[in-house]
Design a protein around this nucleic acid. Structure first.
Lengths: 158, 158
DNA sequence: TATTGTTATACTCTATAACTATA
DNA sequence: TATAGTTATAGAGTATAACAATA
């Protein structure tokens, strides 16, 4: 199991690549995500939206009038956790909680004009950044990466 | 931009797959990781190690006598954050902080026999679980997934 | 002066449980 | 009774800054 039993090892790239961890999908996914997320933050800038806030805004743009509970479900988080996210987006003036006639428990989420503009600008920056990050990958490789990640995502129920 | 402007949309799988977010690598990586991490927790059991503690133990097994600062660097976290992780592993009796003759600032991390046994058992469970999770992927697809994730990981410096 | 490990502290993300107002 | 949204609270995981011991 031990790949290196010399005392006071210095870790070269080769050695690091043969460690057990490197053969696990979870570890590789997490490390890759950390890098992509750092690039996301660079793309949106120092005072830009966090990834989860951007995601929530993106989904309200794609699905206007979505309810908080539905949005939480799509995002895979608890509805309680969404409150602060929506509060933040509302404070930015990027969306509104609109009353729904017929059921006063529900508030439909609708992006404002400013929200739409801010979203489209951020989306452009993020896409450009991902484009550059993935510039070493061919078109086929990118398609394959997406297909494989989505295949894993579909395993949720088991 | 809006794919669905009907009021009170219910989100079918098809609609969800065409949202902007679905075209971003970061979002897909994160969602895939969440699923794999949940399977990791199932594999190691209710009172099993967390992923980061497992990772630290794995790396001390692969690189016995590694220092905390080197381990933190490999894991991509701050050295201050590693203290609690090593404390936990030491409390389990899975590793020891061993003094290094010649430099009393440094403590080399060495797995115990129990640590090695616990690690190998956990590694087996995690590998089996990942195996089952990825059973829909062909051998080539898995190799490709690893290759693409590692390619992204190598983009760190830019 | 610089480095290793440590502590104190704070921030982000998330979950659980209980509450409210409605249905 | 059940549901949508909210609040309170706690627990991971991480980072920054300052410190002690040692080099």
């Amino acid at each position: 199991m031990a790949k290196n039993s010399s005392k006071f090892a210095t870790l070269g790239q080769q050695e690091a690549d043969t460690a057990d961890l490197e053969s696990l999908v979870g570890y590789n996914l997490k490390r890759a995500y950390i890098i992509v997320e750092a690039h996301f933050r660079e793309a949106v800038g120092k005072d830009g939206m966090s990834a989860r806030v951007f995601s929530a805004l993106s989904l309200t743009v794609s699905y206007p009038n979505i309810t908080q509970i539905a949005l939480a479900r799509v995002m895979g988080i608890e509805r309680s956790g969404l409150v602060a996210i929506v509060d933040e987006l509302e404070a930015y003036g990027y969306l509104q909680r609109a009353p729904v006639p017929g059921d006063r428990r529900i508030q439909a989420l609708v992006p404002t004009e400013e929200g739409l503009a801010a979203y489209n600008e951020a989306l452009g920056l993020v896409r450009d950044k991902e484009e550059r990050l993935l510039s070493d990958l061919t078109g086929v490789e990118r398609q394959t990466l997406f297909a494989l990640l989505k295949k894993i995502r579909r395993m949720e129920e088991d």
